[in-house]
Nucleic acid binder design. Structure first.
Lengths: 196, 196
DNA sequence: CCATTTAAGGATCGATCGTTCCAAAAATGG
DNA sequence: CCATTTTTGGAACGATCGATCCTTAAATGG
């Protein structure tokens, strides 16, 4: 069956460790030394198992996106009210203000900001990940409209863009040291605009 | 009076050129080679005139902030309506969608996202620059309240945070390839929340 | 026109970057 | 137990990083 020496690390755990490094340091600033240390494997193993730094980042971003969208999707499904789901999501994020978690930001928005409109897969995948977040917000808005909490005549796609803009901006506020009061106030105003 | 050979470059133009490099490439990714090429001076002259890369960045960020805040402050003063100033500012920014200008983003928000809560002056100055933008928005909101366009009972500081969050998010939308339609819709919803 | 002072050019520094490569180690199948 | 296969550890690669330093060029004051 399997010939030769078996690998001594968990590819899954290694990829998650790499994700953490990219999350806290950014794509370019994360050195292979940082990655190797956090992943607890040797240089050869990294390149053998993940190709190179770019491919490792794509894998990390993919995991982050699927984890985030999956988690939020399940939470939306489990929530009795789509508008409550959105409100609690934004309020809980604002409550992170001042924490280490808040300083990290969101890997997707971090990457979109760092990579902008560059050529290449990392930038492209970051942009697609933002589109995935917007799509999830649109699902929530449409459900809230069906539930009578948002006027069905309002444009769900526009509201979704508004929410993505809000979350991206909130992440920047938190990264720039906004406190829970300031972030909370901004989020309440954002949510007022949602329910109108 | 002035002894020795005079400098052959304009420190002002050189600093502006450096600002452009940091703006398009980011703080860490901007190499001294990039900076030297754009500033059209020699290595010695850069270190002689600006100290080092960090100090040059601080100077570039200071210029950007003062230019931006100064320009917006004058535009606010010249505007007959503070709420119109805010609306046109956000609308014009959304209209940049798809352009090279939109891909650049804003040096202040870019730097805040890149540097986060790091120790050191660059991060600190980026955060202070965001505070300066919020202060300008608060001025505009307070004037709009005095002009009867915004309910004076509403919290001007909270609205200012809301606007900073909105602008930061808008910059991310534009960086991630949002088109003028999508960005425009999000901005209109943001402005609805302002005037309520 | 010479001595002095400062800028400009560029070689060079040690450190670090991402990546490759090779030999040693550790597993398997027969 | 040996041949084979694959992983592992780490040396080494060329490129680039920010920064320093020394020589040369170009200005001024006397």
């Amino acid at each position: 069956m399997t010939r030769g020496r078996p690998i001594a690390f968990s590819p899954d755990e290694a990829a998650n460790a790499a994700m953490q490094v990219f999350w806290s340091r950014g794509y370019e600033s994360a050195s292979t030394r940082d990655l190797l240390a956090a992943m607890s494997l040797s240089r050869s193993s990294l390149y053998q198992a993940f190709g190179n730094k770019e491919q490792l980042f794509l894998e990390a971003l993919r995991r982050y996106r699927e984890s985030l969208v999956g988690r939020l999707g399940r939470r939306l499904e489990a929530s009795p009210s789509a508008v409550d789901f959105l409100a609690s999501l934004f309020r809980e994020t604002a409550q992170e203000a001042g924490s280490d978690r808040a300083a990290l930001g969101c890997l997707i928005f971090n990457s979109a900001s760092e990579l902008g409109q560059q050529d290449g897969l990392p930038s492209q995948h970051a942009r697609q990940s933002i589109a995935a977040i917007t799509a999830l917000f649109q699902q929530a808005v449409e459900r809230a409209q069906a539930e009578g909490d948002i006027d069905p005549d309002r444009d769900a796609a526009a509201l979704a863009s508004y929410l993505t803009m809000g979350m991206a901006g909130l992440r920047i506020l938190l990264k720039s040291g906004s406190d829970t009061h300031q972030a909370g106030q901004a989020v309440e105003l954002l949510l007022d605009g949602l329910r109108r």
